[in-house]
Design a protein around this nucleic acid. Structure first.
Lengths: 233, 233
DNA sequence: ATACAAAATCTGGTTAACCAATTACAGCTA
DNA sequence: TAGCTGTAATTGGTTAACCAGATTTTGTAT
């Protein structure tokens, strides 16, 4: 198990090394947007690593929109100049694992906004989905069961109703990590679920009645405990 | 070229099919958190697809924190129950490509916050990095050159100074798409760069002087044109 | 029957050979 | 010489064989 972690960080280190070598190469050759990178085989030979490693590194840079691979043709520099390329690669290399405080802070930011937007834009279908999630949550809590999942599904339903696909995606990305940390730090073992029913209902009503400011306010109150907890960690 | 696009969407469809089949399987077998999925080979045989396809689908679900692969052991359901699993997979399947409006909306949300946080938390080193980015931007603009890259690097420097790694990551994710769309819709071909210098300087000063509310306000003014543009698309 | 050891099997990950499409270029034609 | 064509090399992607470690099964001795 310990070995597994070791090899994993080792793999990450190799990837970071390759990424910085790709950056150096782009700088050395003064590659502009649209220019072609050397082939994966050449890079793997030049860097003395396997082609798989090169591919993974390229895919990561592709995820961040810096490169673009085209089958049977080559890998190309995206529509970003050398300056932005250098800056962004440096940022990517220094990216650290998100801490819990950072996750909660971001979640609150996103959810205050999605609640407001949902009140403005929710369709009737959105409302139905939110109602279903709300009922499922309420039932679980009243039965004294654990309802962390239903809790978050209600929040995801709001994100969906916000009509903002980017925020929806970001909520999906942070949700599992939030759940993990909740369980790790036992955030929800504090009888918050009961009061949660009323708070969720208030948020739902505000969105249903299309009152954006109220929805945001109710969401803020819902998170007040989390705020507290976050600052005391 | 058209074929390329076709095969790409086709690949995505296959992946979505596999993901939903994995969901069905988790439901059918009532797999709980920590339970093991069938091996990749069995899944590829059962679903009548290649193992590569199965691996890609699993990796996607791993990215969203729903599964966890352990070498030489198996793929396991993460610490998320069936309910959340079902809801999140449904959301992931329905995720659409982010539209420009959604991107801009999210960017503004993030940047108002990172500006405020940067004013509260920036270190002297952060300040130095921001100053460098600011000077690079100013010089380019004064020389009449295109400075979109330097513009965004300044904003990324702020995100970094915010001390929130999640928001920093999200900024990195949306920045290239913002750039692409800026060029696509010619957002910046409007002589905004000149006024941008003053606005950037104001933001920098507010962060330097550790005035969070002012930093947020100045950032808001900086984005007012973008707001306008976003609503008129 | 039980405890333990050894071997066979099964796992995700890795590697290298293979593929189809693209590209570059040599050579032919007009 | 200009333009075309066919062939060979190059490309990222795919596939199947392979690897090392974990797991299960099997066999043996107590």
């Amino acid at each position: 198990m310990k070995l597994d972690i070791l090899t994993k960080t080792e793999t990450l280190d190799i990837q970071k090394t390759i990424i910085s070598k790709i950056r150096d190469l782009i700088n050395a050759k003064n590659l502009e947007p649209g220019d072609k990178l050397p082939s994966e085989r050449m890079l793997s030979e030049k860097f003395e690593v396997t082609r798989s490693n090169v591919r993974e590194a390229i895919q990561k840079l592709e995820f961040y929109g810096l490169l673009k691979s085209i089958p049977q043709s080559g890998t190309f520099v995206a529509n970003i100049g050398v300056t932005a390329m250098n800056g962004m690669i440096e940022d990517i290399l220094r990216l650290e694992e998100p801490d819990f405080k950072s996750l909660v802070e971001t979640r609150i930011l996103l959810e205050l906004k999605t609640a407001r937007l949902a009140a403005l834009r929710r369709t009737d279908d959105d409302l139905l989905k939110m109602k279903e999630a709300l009922d499922a949550y309420t039932e679980k809590v009243l039965n004294g069961e654990d309802a962390v999942q239903e809790d978050l599904l209600f929040h995801l339903a709001i994100a969906k109703a916000s009509g903002n696909s980017t925020m929806n995606t970001f909520m999906l990305i942070i949700t599992p990590e939030i759940i993990t940390n909740f369980e790790k730090y036992h955030v929800c073992d504090k009888g918050l679920a009961q009061s949660g029913i009323i708070e969720h209902q208030s948020i739902f009503d505000a969105i249903k009645d299309q009152k954006p400011q109220l929805a945001k306010q109710k969401m803020k109150e819902h998170f007040s405990v989390l705020y507290q907890y976050c600052y005391n960690i």
